[in-house]
């Protein structure tokens, strides 16, 4: 299976990079760009063939390394 993990800063956590990107977009004339937040995407391939088991495995990875629950949320997509 393939996994795609999206890690984002929790709402309420200051995202100065998002703010800088928003400022640059405004400078380029995209005046309506608001609440810009920057996150990251992690992709991987897994030997696991069962979707639920693959998801559980990636959940474990998120808790142990891929996301920091103090400041980040994550979501997981599993595909064949």
């Amino acid at each position: 299976m393939k996994a795609r993990i999206t890690v984002t800063l929790k709402s309420g956590v200051l995202d100065p990079q998002g703010k800088a990107i928003e400022g640059a977009l405004h400078g380029l004339g995209f005046a309506d760009a608001a609440n810009v937040r920057q996150g990251k995407i992690i992709e991987m391939k897994l030997d696991e063939t069962n979707e639920a088991a693959a998801r559980a495995r990636v959940e474990d990875m998120c808790r142990k390394l891929l996301a920091n629950p103090v400041m980040e949320n994550y979501s997981i997509e599993i595909s064949a």
């Binding site: 956590v13 200051l14 100065p16 990079q17 800088a20 920091n68 103090v70 400041m71």
Partner: peptide, 17 residues
């Protein structure tokens, strides 16, 4: 130390970037 769980909280990007 925060990432290892020995201290609470986290250190984010400086507010002024």
């Amino acid at each position: 130390l925060t990432e290892a769980g020995l201290l609470p909280g986290a250190l984010l990007r400086n507010a002024g970037l």
